[in-house]
Nucleic acid binder design. Structure first.
Lengths: 156, 156
DNA sequence: ATGCCTGCAAACGTTTTGCACATAG
DNA sequence: CTATGTGCAAAACGTTTGCAGGCAT
């Protein structure tokens, strides 16, 4: 069973933040009898250094030159999802992968013109959701909330 | 450019409802210089008669016996999406297709155990979304809101 | 040393495309 | 009649799996 989702304090420095996420990955792996490898480390780094949410293809293209195979990217993303460190979200086109340990949960505004993804936090929405789910006996595990449209720049 | 999304009054009888959706499809097609065919009619019928949201595979399996090819199902679903009559949503496994003209917009509670999809209407959520989007200049076109978890039956 | 991990290639399932024929308008 | 639509087969992708060798522990 995966550990509980815990958020970092925003006071963590970028360096410490990366170290911490890396440590959690190692711990999760050994807890499951799995091993930390250079490939897994690199794929996680790639996700941590990215500005946007990456697709499998983008990760592969960045790392292929260092000899990492496509299969490994797929398999590592699967492991990261099982560790609840990464979440799969649906972009305009292909699935994309997002680190869950970065910031509190947020939803996405996806621009259908330029592809830009903006993150929004909606605590009020989350509260309403939780209440409704409780009322009808649905036990929510995670959710995906994406609004597609035109960003401010593209709508002019 | 696609027409605006309009909802039917719930007082429409099932028969009239079907006729109306069909008519809208024909109009949309001719507006774009495309043609209504028996295959397209059947695929739309299949979606209108379904209880659940169907996948491409399910539609194909139902209609293959009447000689409709897989390619045609894919192409018709694409046309239906472009006409804004059908929306593609992500099930637990494969993409599923949902008629947009059936009822007011709703969100989905997807059970990760039995796969059941329950629909919820959240006008309050929609209002909050709209307000936020307006504030930051984002023009929303459509959205996808799916909560994954355990339905009442499976959570016991 | 053992057992998990990796990369390759091959298998698989889904979606798209090229082409000749059919058909709606 | 003409341009669009259809079905087939093949191609093109995305993703998974089997296997021989590599490496973390």
């Amino acid at each position: 069973m995966p550990r509980e989702l815990v958020y970092f304090s925003p006071t963590l420095s970028p360096r410490d933040y990366r170290r911490k996420v890396s440590d959690i990955f190692s711990q999760e792996l050994s807890r499951q009898g799995l091993r930390m490898t250079s490939q897994r480390r690199r794929i996680l780094d790639e996700l941590m250094n990215a500005e946007r949410h990456l697709s499998e293809k983008e990760i592969y293209r960045s790392l292929a030159s260092s000899g990492i195979g496509r299969t490994t990217v797929f398999r590592t993303l699967k492991v990261l999802r099982e560790c609840r460190l990464v979440e799969q979200v649906s972009g305009t086109d292909r699935p994309r992968f997002e680190l869950r340990w970065e910031r509190p949960h947020h939803d996405h505004l996806v621009c259908i013109s330029c592809g830009h993804i903006r993150e929004v936090r909606w605590p009020k929405l989350e509260a309403i959701q939780e209440r409704t789910c409780r009322k009808i006996g649905f036990v929510p595990k995670w959710h995906r909330h994406e609004i597609f449209g035109l960003c401010a720049a593209c709508s002019r």
